[in-house]
Amino acid sequence: MNTLIRNGEIVDDGWQWIDAGEADLSVRLAAGGRFVLPLAAWLVHRASLDPACAGVWLGPDDEPESVLPWLADIPLIAIRFPVFTDGRGYSLARLLRTRHGYTGELRAVGDVLRDQLYFLQGCGFDAFQLRADQCPEEALAAFQDYSWAPLSGR
């Protein structure tokens, strides 16, 4: 189980992750719970789900513009990092937080490592699903890497 850090604390994840192209999705959704759906599936199933239980995840080349009409009601947006050196998710986060004013949970998932947490936070992420091999205690320390706030993240 990957560690989830939310607002600086290790917490249990109350959300079920749906992968892209998952079979029998309707059956799974019908069973109930809170789900994080890939963008394409979220757009299909959004209307039939309780908005408070339907999060969406974006890949690095997904356009956040497609979720804008419903942004105020989305409880959780996850941005997936296929590899930690793919920096597109940083810009997606900044766009969502600043230009589009998103205020719900913004979660980094995938290749999320201790050494990027401070900067991910600087772009507006407030939740982090760590890569399985990451030490949770070391990761918590990462939020104190700097006693300084980056100029461009203020």
């Binding site: 920096g87 940083y90 401070y118 900067f119 700097y146 100029l151 461009s152 993240g153």
Partner: peptide, 14 residues
């Protein structure tokens, strides 16, 4: 220089 130093959004450019 100050703006670009550790600018969190731009540490992993293409």
């Amino acid at each position: 220089r100050q703006w670009s130093t550790l600018a969190p959004e731009f540490l992993f450019l293409p």
